[in-house]
């Protein structure tokens, strides 16, 4: 029972991490109609910038704004220099261009930082473990990630539901042409949305630094899962991204944790472990297939 609670927390924490990435991706896709494969690269930029500043200054407080700023600026630069030329073009062109950006960012990171993974330490105050459930120490840093993720979700809700910018974002997601026809400066809105998405990706990247490995190509690893989240949640819907991310996080974690034990009851030990590992890694994709079968537009379709 205690173990189940711990695993649920683990699942939620992976979920909010995915949410930070998925929120930006789904907004960009829903509003601008652009498939941004380089979203994972912005996550990497955030992680590298924060890691570098932390190593140079020894201060986590400076590393956070550095990571956020680097990712947001990189994102807006990409929008201004590359994507702006691609809005009217076919999806295939966008995929090719942003795929090229992945190579560009990866090679750039190798030139600047080398192939060796960077070292990032957990900030002083978050190093220990907290006993939220008696007898089970849970890492304070992971709780912090969970808290930040939920705060961001609440903040995004407020921004999108209750501000003028949010209204434009919502309108842009559902009636893009109409917003343009009403005289809204769509180009500015696009740059803003893209910058916001990049900022969130950078936030995910800088928080991932101390627990994952900060290295070239780290963005592509997690981007696949993010795409799954976006498809499950419904393209263009931030609410869907949150639901999809938490669902994917929970399903992935719980399958990895409990499937081997379940199968071991039915078959030989080593065979059960190998089969369970295979099934668990298919889990989120099976979930995606199931959602697509029952609700082809995702859980919370934006273009209702």
């Amino acid at each position: 029972m205690v173990l189940l609670l711990e695993q649920l927390l683990n699942g939620l924490q992976l979920g909010v991490m995915l949410f930070l990435l998925a929120a930006g991706l789904t907004l960009v896709f829903g509003i601008m109609g652009v498939i941004n494969l380089a979203h994972g690269s912005l996550y990497m930029v955030g992680a590298f910038a924060a890691a570098w500043v932390a190593a140079q200054t020894g201060s986590a407080l400076l590393a956070v704004p550095a990571g956020l700023a680097a990712a947001a600026l990189a994102g807006m630069a990409v929008e201004l220099l590359v994507l702006r030329r691609l809005y009217a073009r076919d999806h295939l062109d966008q995929v090719l261009a942003t795929f090229g950006l992945i190579l560009f960012f990866n090679q750039g990171a190798i030139l600047l930082f080398g192939r060796q993974p960077l070292f990032v330490d957990i900030p002083e105050g978050l190093r220990g473990a907290v006993e939220i459930i008696p007898g089970v120490p849970y890492p304070a840093y992971r709780l912090a990630i969970l808290a930040v993720g939920l705060l961001v979700a609440a903040g995004l809700y407020g921004l999108i539901r209750h501000t003028r910018t949010g209204m434009l974002v919502r309108a842009g997601a559902t009636h893009r042409e109409m917003v343009r026809a009403l005289g809204v400066d769509v180009r500015k809105l696009y740059t803003l949305v893209f910058g916001l998405g990049a900022l969130l990706a950078g936030l995910a990247g800088l928080m991932a630094g101390p627990i994952f490995s900060v290295q070239v190509g780290m963005g592509e690893q997690i981007l696949i899962m993010t795409f799954v989240v976006v498809v499950i949640g419904g393209i263009g819907s931030v609410r869907g991204a949150l639901a999809g991310a938490l669902l994917v996080g929970l399903v992935d974690t719980l399958l990895r944790a409990y499937l081997p034990a379940l199968l071991r009851g039915a078959m030989q030990g080593p065979d059960a472990d190998a089969l369970a590992a295979g099934l668990a890694s298919m889990g989120v994709y099976l979930l995606m297939a199931l959602v697509l079968l029952l609700r082809p537009r995702g859980l919370f379709p934006a273009h209702a």
Binding site: I35, L37, F99, L103, G217, F227, V228, V231, I235
Partner: peptide, 23 residues
């Protein structure tokens, strides 16, 4: 519908990214 299919295809392409040839 088309959008989702493109997105899925894009996800597939990303999986290949780390494997792409360098000079």
């Amino acid at each position: 519908m088309i959008e989702r299919r493109t997105l899925l295809r894009a996800a597939g392409a990303t999986a290949m990214a780390p494997l792409l040839a360098r000079p």
